[in-house]
């Protein structure tokens, strides 16, 4: 009874994929015992923190106790909620623009290996340069509204999505394309029925990393840009030494990150499980 989960995932023959393997190693079928152990560990860690902070009389402005963080978060949630909304708007619109452009560019550019080689260094620069650095410049040009932040998020997530999607689109299996061609498939059909599904696992990896980078940049831009957003709350609460609220916001950010991860994990499980 306990090993049904492992039986289900048993694979006969076929190849083992790489793309989403790291994603699937997490939460792939838990038994009652495992769930119990996970909860117990959480209780020990959080409870231990609580007791340790009490015991050593650590002042609240250094590190608030978990219970204080929860109380502050619940009590001030109505104050934090609008900022959460702002950050989500920035994150979603920036990510949608960046990811959309990234996937399309990857699909197009991989069809022209020569052009790809020439463009590659610039993409790499975009990937490796922290886009946060551009926020002050963007603010000068676009003011303190949503625009500079959305642009920064798009610039941070787009290249990530693109570079991973390109890896996916480059995985050409000549035999699968020959198969489609032997049935008279058009170039467009080959793209939608062979190349795109083949690239999907890598596109999902790119989307996940891109979304995490987007979150990072959205928060950072809020800290630099001031006025609104979760990043702004972090600077405000720390300057007012409201550490329980500060950590409450950090907690929200952790949860956002985990939600991004889990979302793409579930999408991958549904649509790209053939490779995992």
């Amino acid at each position: 009874m306990t090993d049904t989960a492992t039986r289900d995932s048993e694979v006969v023959g076929g190849r083992v994929g790489k793309g989403l393997q790291s994603l699937s190693s997490f939460s792939s079928g838990q038994t009652k015992l495992e769930i119990l152990a996970i909860i117990a560990t959480a209780v020990v860690v959080i409870g231990g923190m609580e007791l340790a902070l009490l015991w050593f009389e650590v002042p609240q402005y250094v590190l608030p106790r978990p219970s204080e963080i929860v109380v502050a978060l619940v009590g001030d949630f109505h104050l934090i909620l609008p900022h959460l909304g702002h950050t989500l708007v920035v994150l979603f619109s920036g990510f949608a623009i960046g990811a959309g452009i990234g996937i399309v560019l990857a699909a197009v550019i991989t069809q022209f290996p020569f052009a790809e080689k020439i463009i590659a260094p610039y993409i790499l620069i975009l990937v490796t340069t922290p886009m946060l650095a551009l926020v002050p410049l963007l603010i000068l040009r676009f003011g303190f509204g949503y625009e500079p932040r959305i642009i920064a998020v798009a610039l941070a997530s787009g290249p990530m999505v693109m570079i991973n999607s390109a890896t996916g689109f480059r995985r050409v299996d000549a035999n699968k394309i020959a198969l489609a061609r032997s049935y008279g498939a058009s170039t467009l059909q080959i793209f939608w029925k062979i190349r795109a599904p083949m690239a999907l696992p890598m596109i999902l990896v790119g989307l996940m990393i891109g979304a995490i980078f987007g979150l990072l940049t959205a928060v950072g831009a809020g800290m630099v840009g001031g006025g609104f957003g979760l990043g702004n709350r972090l600077t405000t609460y720390s300057s007012m030494i409201q550490m329980p609220q500060f950590f409450g916001v950090v907690l929200i950010l952790s949860i956002l990150g985990i939600l991004i991860y889990v979302t793409f994990y579930l999408i991958g499980k549904k649509w790209a499980s053939w490779e995992a």
């Binding site: 035999n175 699968k176 198969l179 032997s182 049935y183 059909q189 029925k193 083949m198 053939w274």
Partner: peptide, 29 residues
């Protein structure tokens, strides 16, 4: 269309189940 081809190794599309693999030619055509 009168010529069928069977490849080295099965060359099935791993993201489609067996029936959808068999229906692939009909979909393309």
């Amino acid at each position: 269309p009168d010529i069928g081809l069977v490849f080295q190794e099965a060359n099935l599309l791993p993201w489609r189940n067996l029936m959808d693999n068999i229906l692939f030619p009909f979909e393309v055509k």
